Simulated assay, not measured.
Amino acid sequence: MTLKTLTAASLAALTIGAGMAEAETWRYAFEEALDEVQGKFAQKFKAEVEANSDNEVQLFPFGTLGESVDIMEQAQSGILQFVDQSPGFTGALIPEAQVFFVPYLLPQDQDQLFSFFRNSKAVKELFPPLYAEQGLELLTMFPEGEVMMTTTEPVRAPADLNEVKFRVMTNPLIVESYQAFGATPTPLPWGQVYGALQTGMIQGQENPAFFIESTKMYEVTDYITRPGHNNFTTAVMANKDFYDALSDEDKQVVQNAIAVAFDYILEYQDGLTEESLAKIREAKPAMTITTLTEEERAPFRETAAAVEQKYLEIGGAQAQAILDQMKADLQAASESAQAEAAAAN
């Protein structure tokens, strides 16, 4: 082999090696199973990234890397590049994000809800700097479904929650909310909830219908109550140092994948709640599922003002600005949905 040939071969090998070095493996953890809403979002994100770049995305469902607090620490430290976590678990880091636990703030109407998450200035402009202060790049937030109570005894009024030990996430405002409802809020990591219900350590918990069905919470409770007080919200984040160091091309790949996954997950949820409740009825015909009337919801709804005030006290320096912008965004979403409905008719 001549020197010229050797040099050419070496350069070719270096070029190939350099090209291979550009491809990275990104680690993404979330709080649910692969076949649940966060898992579906993550799988769509992975597919889009891998279809449009040389990068690989490794997915880590709930439990594979520990509890929620563990994956957040790993995301902040850079062990994970991406994490999907509810504001319910980031409340200690970002107190303003607790606004999503003010009862009856988010609309029940799905069109209004989706419009809010698509267009909210609070989500797109006010929250990102707060997440950045914690070493996180906020990529998107999305709803996962109407929150329902599952209990061992029927609930038709706040009095029915008196002395009920009700599992909540480790979040001060949701604790406040269930205190206002009359329950005894009991913060527990998710991995302990089924056993705690089974042994009677707690008597209730809340989650969207798909999660109640997939985690079989109906096996250890007898009643599902729909008070219409909230919709479960989650946030997808990247480690900020990692994200800032990405090439412009890779940042665009990430943003495009997030946008595609966002549209996909909203479409995926259409009809999911009723489908999940039907599966629960089939698995446990004795399960009682109750949608509270507006009259029955009224005493629960009356607690919202006190919880909102508590949010302003504990929600951080930007709490008032966040709440005001959220309300403006929600009003805009309502008007947009009404205009679309009128045009359709």
Rank of each mutant, 00 (worst) to 15 (best):
D70E: 02
D70A: 01
D70L: 01
M72D: 06
M72G: 04
E73R: 11
E73K: 08
E73C: 05
Q74H: 08
Q74E: 11
A75L: 14
A75V: 13
G78L: 02
G78Y: 02
L80G: 00
L80K: 00
L80A: 00
L80E: 00
Q81P: 00
Q85I: 13
Q85E: 12
S86T: 05
P87E: 09
P87C: 07
G88S: 01
F89G: 10
G91W: 05
A92R: 10
A92K: 11
L93V: 10
L93K: 14
P95F: 13
P95Q: 13
P95K: 10
P95T: 11
E96K: 09
A97E: 15
Q98Y: 10
V99C: 05
V99S: 06
F101Q: 12
V102G: 12
V102K: 14
V102M: 14
Y104M: 01
L105H: 06
L106M: 09
L106K: 06
L106N: 06
P107L: 05
D109Q: 07
D109R: 07
D109C: 04
D109H: 05
D111P: 04
D111Q: 10
L113P: 08
F114T: 15
F114H: 15
S115K: 08
S115W: 05
S115R: 11
S115H: 08
S115A: 14
F116G: 00
F116M: 00
F117Y: 04
N119Y: 10
S120F: 00
K121L: 01
A122S: 02
V123F: 03
K124H: 15
K124Y: 09
K124T: 12
K124G: 12
E125D: 13
L126D: 01
F127V: 09
P128F: 08
P128C: 12
P129H: 06
P129G: 08
Y131V: 08
Y131G: 11
A132Y: 09
A132R: 14
E133W: 11
Q134F: 12
G135H: 02
L136H: 00
L136I: 01
L138H: 06
L138V: 05
M141F: 11
F142A: 05
F142T: 08
P143E: 04
E144T: 14
E144R: 15
E146P: 13
E146M: 15
E146V: 14
V147D: 15
V147I: 15
V147H: 07
M148F: 14
M148K: 12
T150S: 14
T151D: 01
T152G: 13
E153S: 13
E153T: 13
P154T: 06
R156C: 05
P158H: 07
A159V: 01
A159W: 00
D160H: 03
N162E: 14
N162F: 07
E163Q: 15
V164F: 08
K165E: 14
K165G: 10
R167W: 12
M169P: 06
N171K: 07
P172V: 12
I174C: 04
I174T: 10
I174P: 04
E176K: 09
S177F: 09
S177T: 14
Y178N: 11
Q179D: 13
Q179E: 15
A180P: 02
F181L: 03
F181K: 01
T184W: 09
P185W: 01
P185L: 00
P185I: 00
T186N: 07
T186D: 04
P187N: 07
L188H: 13
P189R: 05
